[in-house]
Amino acid sequence: MGIEEKLPSGFLLTTVEQFAGYARKGSLWPATFGLACCAIEMMAAGGARYDLARFGMEVFRASPRQADLMIVAGRVSQKMAPVLRQIYDQMPEPKWVIAMGVCASSGGMFNNYAIVQGVDHVVPVDIYLPGCPPRPEMLIDAILKLHAKISDTKLGKNREAEVRELEAAALTAPATHEMRGLLP
């Protein structure tokens, strides 16, 4: 990411991280990727009552070239999946993805031939937001969690170290099928 990588790690990078994170989350522009029912709730979140403009996000950019957040709102069919990937690829870095609704997170109630069972099969997802459809307040909560994630993003060598840590933790984490919940 440019100049940050050439500076030594230290308090200067940390300050730049915070500043860069603040700038990025403060005006996160979503790309229009409303597909189905969740799109209507996303539009309602951008409407007057649940206002996304207070987060700087009321401009839903039509062109992915100008957007940095893709809210996949709705069920992604097999025919739509390549289009989704193309739009994601056309977005410039840094970019984030919110999978809005259960259909985008995991295929939802449509466990069948026509729906991709989770858009994480197609694009990397940062925040999964369940709901059918999630209320606009839930979407705003997801966006705020994403803002927290963005403002805490490390840059440069700190990011490399963080990625290594996450990878090590993921390798030693228990597999999903071993998790027994409250059972011993």
Partner: peptide, 26 residues
Amino acid sequence: IGYLHTGIEKNMEFRTWTQGVTFVTR
């Protein structure tokens, strides 16, 4: 068209009549 095809009609063939309402509503 077809970019939102969900196969709802086929899904309903494996659910009860009342559960069909939750599919049809979408």
